[in-house]
C-alpha cells in the first residue's frame, strides 16, 4: 500500500505527462490546420514551396541530443551520481543556447528570402509554429534552470 506522500509524488509526475499531452494536442491542432490549408491551396495552385534552411535540420538534431542528455542527467541523478548529472545538465543548457542561435539564424534566413509572417500562408505557418514552439522553449528553459538549481542544492 502506497503512502499518501508516495501517491503525491506519482501524481505530480502524472501532471507533467498530462501537460505534455495537452501541448501535443495544441501542435496537433496547428499541424492539422497546416495540412488542410496546404491541400486546399495546392489544389488552387496558391501554395508556395519554401525551402527551409539547413540550420533547422541542425537544430532538430540538437533537439534530439538534448533530449538524450537530459534523460541521462535524470538517470544519473537517480543513481546518486550528482556530478555527472550536473555536467549533463550544463551540456543540455549549452545545447539549448546553441539551438537558440541556430533558430535565430533560421529566422534571419527567412527574412532575407522575403518570407514574412503576413505573406503567403505557407510562410505564416512556419512563423506560427516557430513562435508557438518558442513559447514552449522558454517554459522548458525555465524548467531546466529550476532543475539545475535543485541539483546544485
Amino acid at each position: 500500500m502506497k503512502s499518501y506522500n508516495d501517491k503525491n509524488i506519482i501524481a505530480v509526475k502524472f501532471i507533467v505527462w498530462l501537460f505534455i499531452l495537452s501541448s501535443v494536442m495544441l501542435f496537433a491542432g496547428i499541424t492539422s490546420a497546416y495540412i488542410v490549408n496546404r491541400i486546399g491551396l495546392l489544389n488552387a495552385n496558391k501554395w508556395i514551396y519554401i525551402q527551409l534552411p539547413n540550420v533547422f535540420i541542425c537544430s532538430n538534431i540538437l533537439l534530439i541530443i538534448s533530449s538524450i542528455t537530459i534523460y541521462y542527467a535524470n538517470y544519473l541523478f537517480n543513481e546518486y551520481k550528482y556530478l555527472y548529472s550536473k555536467t549533463l545538465l550544463i551540456i543540455t543548457f549549452f545545447i539549448g543556447i546553441f539551438f537558440l542561435i541556430l533558430q535565430l539564424n533560421g529566422l534571419k534566413y527567412l527574412i532575407n528570402n522575403n518570407i514574412y509572417l503576413s505573406g503567403n500562408v505557407a510562410g505564416s505557418y512556419i512563423y506560427n509554429i516557430y513562435y508557438t514552439w518558442s513559447t514552449c522553449y522558454i517554459w522548458s528553459f525555465r524548467y531546466l534552470l529550476l532543475l539545475f538549481f535543485y541539483t546544485t542544492k
Binding site: L18, L21, S22, S23, M25, L26, F27, A28, G29, I30, A33, N37, L117, S118, V121, S124, N128, T132
Partner: peptide, 25 residues
C-alpha cells in the same frame, strides 16, 4: 477538455494572428 481545449487554443492563436499580424489563415 484536456484533448479538445488545446485545439481551440490553436484556432484562437491563428485568429489572433489574422486579426493583429496580417496573416491569412
Amino acid at each position: 477538455g484536456l484533448l479538445s481545449f488545446p485545439v481551440l487554443m490553436a484556432a484562437v492563436i491563428l485568429l489572433i494572428l489574422d486579426r493583429g499580424f496580417g496573416t491569412s489563415f
